[in-house]
Computed example of a mutant assay.
Amino acid sequence: MRVPGADLSTEEQATGRIALLAKALALSNKEDMSASPKKLIDFAALNLLRYPAKHAKDLRAWDASDEYLAEFIRADAPALLINDAFGALHCAVGVNAFHINDSWCSRHAIEINSQQSFTPYSGQALAYGLVKLPKSLSLFEAQLQEAARYLSAPLTLYFSGMQKHVSSGHLDIIKSYCDEVEYLPTQRKARMYTARLRPGQQTATPYLQAVPELSLTLHNMPGVFAGQKIDIGSRFFIEHFDRLPSAETVADVGCGNGLLSLAYHRLHPKAELHLFDESLAAVESAQLSFAANFPDASRQIQHCDGLSDAVANGQTFDLILINPPFHQQNTVTTDIALSMFAQARQCMAATSELWIVANRHLNYQAALKKNFRQIELIAQNAKFVIIKAKR
């Protein structure tokens, strides 16, 4: 069966999406937006792309909560979009979209799918906002604080997420920062709230976490992975750091709060460290953690998709460390990990080493054997494996 748009380039597909959107939005201009809301966009017709490129055929770039939120779009009115995952909402809203979004991958997907620039929200005039409820409650609270800081009057927001991922904690946070909270009927397992966000001046602050066995204090911004506890995979990895080579250049891919790089620096203080994460909260956490613990360490910390910038610049590293995620928001996927491994191979010389800690049930060894000539199991326990790979 032919997949619509499969023989078109990404740019051609995006052009087709824009034409469909223009037609839909032109029709919506004729609607009275004060009347009952109507869904403006058929997302299935737009051939929206996930980023990184999807591997499981059942993963889409939108869900029922995007479709529910799209019913409340106001034609030609400027909108705040919080956590637009792959640009479905941006495509529906158009050029009047302003974003609060932690994810570099989401930002990139928005630009790919809309062929428009990602514009962060920084106080632009708004008529309303659409919010995809994130997995992290601390991130959600910080995002409402960020939005509220710019407001001079209450702003109507619509909040949605798939029912199985929406908790009472989300509603508690909405009630803490909003008035006139109303629950709307669930549609196709997508929950919906509407409320008025109050102006406010609260700012997100890091959670300080002591790691006495390493004489470190981590600074974890809201939303960073393992924000109030040490990730057990990283802890297991660090227990075997005495087996790592002494490298001149080290890449820490998906660095989170910087724990792996901090631990490596303690053992090898002369190493040049390069930290990468697609989460802005992670980048900020790593920056704060290094400033507090090793302010003079040689380091670069970047907000990007894994090693994508390093690949583009032709960089190589002596040692690459990866503790890969297997979730993208609430979706279980190995897409990000496989993308990291492919990028790592392009950033390795003949003598470089890639070290990975991962959940053992994911069986990454099979995928690694396709692209690396030497795979070695360094250590394992009931939950994790540590793998070394060479080109």
Rank of each mutant, 00 (worst) to 15 (best):
L48C: 02
K388P: 08
S138D: 13
I100D: 05
K369T: 10
M1E: 09
I356T: 02
S261R: 01
M162R: 08
F372K: 09
H55G: 11
K189A: 07
Y158S: 02
I18L: 08
D84M: 00
T331N: 04
D42P: 03
D318E: 12
L244W: 00
D305A: 10
A310H: 00
R235D: 07
R391C: 12
Q380Y: 11
K132H: 05
L216P: 02
L275V: 05
L69N: 01
H165N: 13
P325N: 09
L354E: 00
Q187D: 10
A195K: 06
C347A: 06
W104F: 13
F140R: 01
L307P: 01
L81S: 01
H361Q: 09
V93G: 03
N101K: 11
S28C: 13
L155M: 06
R2P: 09
A271T: 13
K229W: 06
R107F: 07
S34Q: 15
L321I: 08
A382L: 14
H274C: 05
N113M: 01
V224W: 06
A282I: 10
D309M: 07
A312I: 10
G306T: 07
A251C: 05
A26Y: 11
K383W: 03
R149S: 15
P324R: 04
L273P: 03
F72W: 04
E141L: 06
I378H: 00
Y150A: 14
A35W: 03
P154A: 15
L259S: 02
D277K: 12
S103Y: 01
I82Y: 01
N330G: 11
E213R: 14
G5I: 04
V166C: 13
L260C: 02
I375N: 05
E213F: 07
D42Y: 05
Q287M: 15
D102A: 08
V211A: 01
P325Y: 05
R243L: 06
I238D: 02
S138I: 00
D7S: 14
Q124K: 05
E67I: 02
A310Q: 00
V311Q: 03
R235K: 08
H361E: 08
M348I: 07
Q209D: 07
A35M: 09
L137I: 10
I375E: 06
R191V: 13
A85E: 11
A292S: 13
K189L: 06
A210Q: 11
S106L: 03
R188Y: 08
L321F: 04
F372E: 03
V93A: 03
F43E: 01
K270V: 11
A337T: 14
F237H: 05
N313L: 13
A125T: 15
V224A: 13
S167F: 04
L157N: 00
G223I: 03
L21Q: 00
C105N: 09
G16W: 06
F241Y: 11
R198Y: 07
R373M: 14
A79Q: 01
P222T: 07
G161N: 03
L157G: 03
E182I: 12
T351G: 08
L126I: 06
F241W: 06
E182V: 14
L214I: 08
M192N: 12
N101H: 08
L321T: 02
A125K: 15
A88P: 01
E11H: 15
I173G: 02
A282R: 04
A342C: 15
G16R: 03
S103M: 04
A286Q: 04
L288M: 12
Q315P: 12
N293V: 07
A92C: 04
Q228E: 14
R360L: 09
K39V: 14
S122P: 10
R243S: 12
G256N: 10
M162E: 11
L319F: 10
